[in-house]
């Protein structure tokens, strides 16, 4: 007996959480990805508790060691424990990505709702801004912004959020413009609901499904983009660990310790894969057209 059989028939356009979750639970790959991300998040939160060593502690008698009981993932060229540094790096990199995507969703949704709800010249003006941002290659724009503002986690998150705003603005705008044509929006206007109430109570909830899918897809993109910026020395600054700067550091000792590049790299790839799988799974559960947005 599933939840769907006892619940009353729902609007086919936006299935409620229960049925979406029910569908998600029947996708083993998606559930594995959710579990992976949950564990990663837990490791990031508990990094100070879980780390066997402090992330900056050097030990010059134990440099570039292979994995051993004392150092489960080995040590780097300064004798720092890789496992501890990876835990802190996970914390920093995930935080940067969450900040970037969070801010991008907030700003993008506001822009998209304004453009889709009001239409007309507001729409045209906002879309020119969005199109200009989209025309500049993302990583180039983010690097140029950080180059001017100065490197670091906060500025890198901010720069990344700017390159992610257009995609959220566009999705919201398309949905909002479509929902805006629905009779219930006409009705809400005719009974004199304020703009704010119409948008928040009716427009936003009906644009939520594709947005949630896009959030997970963008999180995957953000992991790679933040990694690239860290690798180039433009995001989280050493000695603070991040996935990108740990990879860069291990690449510089690739002659002596080639295995070191696989630890941050594999974790990044798995994380990106997991976000993509969750995005695809949600897409199927919401029963959205998979070819509509790329």
């Amino acid at each position: 007996m599933t939840a769907a059989t006892i619940s009353p028939p729902r609007s086919p356009q936006v299935p409620r959480g229960q049925t979406v979750l029910g569908k998600l639970r029947r996708q083993p790959m998606t559930m594995a990805a959710v579990l992976f991300i949950a564990m990663l998040g837990l490791a990031a939160l508990l990094a100070p508790v879980l780390s066997p060593y402090r992330p900056h502690d050097t030990d010059y008698f134990a440099i570039l060691q292979t994995p051993s009981p004392a150092h489960l993932l080995g040590t780097d060229d300064l004798g720092r424990d890789i496992l501890s540094r990876m835990l802190y790096a996970t914390r920093a990199s995930l935080l940067a990505c969450l900040q970037a995507v969070g801010l991008a969703v907030f700003v993008g949704v506001i822009i998209g709702l304004l453009a889709g709800y009001f239409g007309g010249w507001i729409d045209r003006l906002l879309m020119i801004v969005i199109d200009s941002l989209l025309a500049i290659p993302g990583l180039l724009l983010a690097l140029a912004l950080v180059g001017a503002l100065g490197p670091g986690l906060v500025n890198a998150s901010f720069a990344l959020s700017i390159i992610f705003v257009p995609v959220f603005a566009r999705i919201t705008r398309i949905q909002a413009a479509a929902v805006n044509q629905e009779p219930y929006m006409e009705a809400s206007r005719s009974i004199g609901l304020t703009h704010r109430r119409s948008v928040l109570r009716h427009l936003l909830p009906n644009t939520a499904a594709p947005l949630i899918v896009q959030i997970f897809i963008t999180l995957g993109v953000a992991i790679v983009a933040e990694g690239a910026m860290s690798y180039l020395g433009m995001s989280i600054q050493p000695p603070e660990a991040s996935w990108g700067n740990m990879l860069q550091r291990s690449f510089s000792t690739i002659n002596e310790a080639p295995w070191l590049i696989f630890i941050p790299g594999a974790l990044m790839t798995l994380t990106v894969l997991a976000f993509q799988v969750i995005g695809d799974g949600l897409n199927r559960s919401f029963a959205l057209d998979t070819r509509s947005e790329t």
Binding site: G227, Q248, I261, T269
Partner: peptide, 23 residues
């Protein structure tokens, strides 16, 4: 293809260098 789309290019670059240039 899923792995190809997920793998960060800067990691792939280090793997390729490590394999074909260093090793």
């Amino acid at each position: 293809t899923a792995v190809g789309l997920a793998i960060p290019n800067f990691w792939l670059a280090t793997i390729l260098t490590g394999t074909f240039s260093v090793q």
